[in-house]
């Protein structure tokens, strides 16, 4: 019986402690530790620091047990205080773990972004390179085109130069021919170079009988030679001028000088000198070249002059 009583009292002991506990408020350290554990187990520690949280739970259980056994003792408060710190430690360690993970994640992300930047930069560089190649090709084409243009200019220049040379030669030849013609003319007439042009003077007595305007037979071969020379001459215009001496009336002389000039002109045209290039003018006695008081002077004044007006004069 006593043994049964004893065993009953031993079995009822925790219940009795429980009843006692129910009447005593837990110390604030234990209250705080329980609340802290609730927060911790709902927070990141459960995931990232389960071992730390398990240790904290063990410390809390120890504190709860101590409270059950001796709710008012200082030891219970100390054990609860230590449990609270263990829980806080588990949470702090979880935060450290998370910070480490965040840092690692940021570092990975940074490496990724920098890699992308590098690739973008590389792409950009490739694009720039392509642009440079394109410009190079373009400038090469431009250079080739300019070289071709230059070659064409050179050909043209050479051609122009040859043409000029040919023209110069032609001019020299023409001048030579003209000189030869003048030399030939000098044999049959007086040839002078004056400001109005080359002046070929034929004596009136050689061409015409006195007061007549028809050519003497001997005049024709001379005029033939003159016609040939005029056709070769580089001239714009030929003017046939008739001049008389001072004997007789002015009107008669004027008329005679014109008719004689006209006769010579017509003959020369008939011999091939272009009609549009040659004209006849009568000056009568108005332009003597010698003294009319002497027979020789008068003979010199009776004359026909052919003025060869060179091109561009």
């Amino acid at each position: 019986m006593f043994r049964a009583m004893r065993s009953f009292s031993l079995a009822a002991l925790p219940t009795l402690f429980g009843l006692a506990c129910a009447t005593v408020d837990p110390p604030k350290e234990l209250v705080e530790a329980r609340a802290e554990y609730e927060r911790a187990s709902a927070g990141p520690a459960a995931k990232v620091n389960p071992a730390g949280l398990y240790e904290a739970k063990k410390a809390l259980t120890k504190a709860n047990n101590a409270f059950e056994q001796d709710p008012k003792s200082d030891d219970t408060r100390d054990i609860a205080y230590i449990a609270l710190r263990r829980i806080q430690l588990a949470t702090a360690q979880a935060r450290i773990e998370l910070a480490g993970e965040e840092k690692a994640r940021a570092d990975r992300e940074r490496a990724k972004v920098e890699g992308e930047q590098q690739r973008t930069k590389q792409k950009l560089t490739e694009a720039e390179l392509a642009e440079i190649r394109r410009k190079l090709t373009e400038s090469e084409e431009q250079r080739r085109s300019e070289a071709e243009k230059l070659a064409r200019y050179n050909e043209q220049l050479q051609s122009t130069s040859q043409q000029l040379q040919a023209e110069r030669q032609a001019r020299l030849d023409a001048e030579k021919k003209a000189d030869e013609a003048v030399a030939n003319l000098a044999k049959i007439a007086l040839v002078k170079q004056e400001t109005r042009g080359l002046v070929i003077t034929l004596s009136g007595g050689v061409l015409f009988a006195s007061t007549k305007d028809t050519l003497l037979p001997n005049a024709r071969p001379k005029l033939d030679e003159i016609a040939a020379a005029l056709q070769k001459a580089e001239a714009d215009q030929f003017v046939v001028e008739g001049h008389t001496d001072a004997r007789g009336s002015e009107a008669t002389n004027q008329d005679l000088s014109y008719r004689r000039a006209q006769t010579v002109r017509d003959y020369l045209v008939n011999r091939g000198v272009p009609a549009e290039k040659i004209k006849a003018v009568g000056y009568g006695r108005s332009r003597p070249v010698a003294d009319n008081t002497t027979a020789e002077g008068r003979a010199n004044n009776r004359r026909v002059e052919i003025i060869v007006q060179p091109k561009g004069s």
Binding site: R85, L89, K103, R105
Partner: peptide, 30 residues
């Protein structure tokens, strides 16, 4: 024992602060 528990928590908190600053700074930089 209480002092030891406090000191160990102090160690963890002292380690945590610069790590969190580093992590935040790295995240902001990214």
């Amino acid at each position: 024992l209480r002092a030891q528990a406090d000191a160990e928590l102090a160690v963890a908190l002292a380690r945590e602060a610069p790590l969190e600053t580093d992590a935040k700074s790295a995240t902001e930089q990214v």
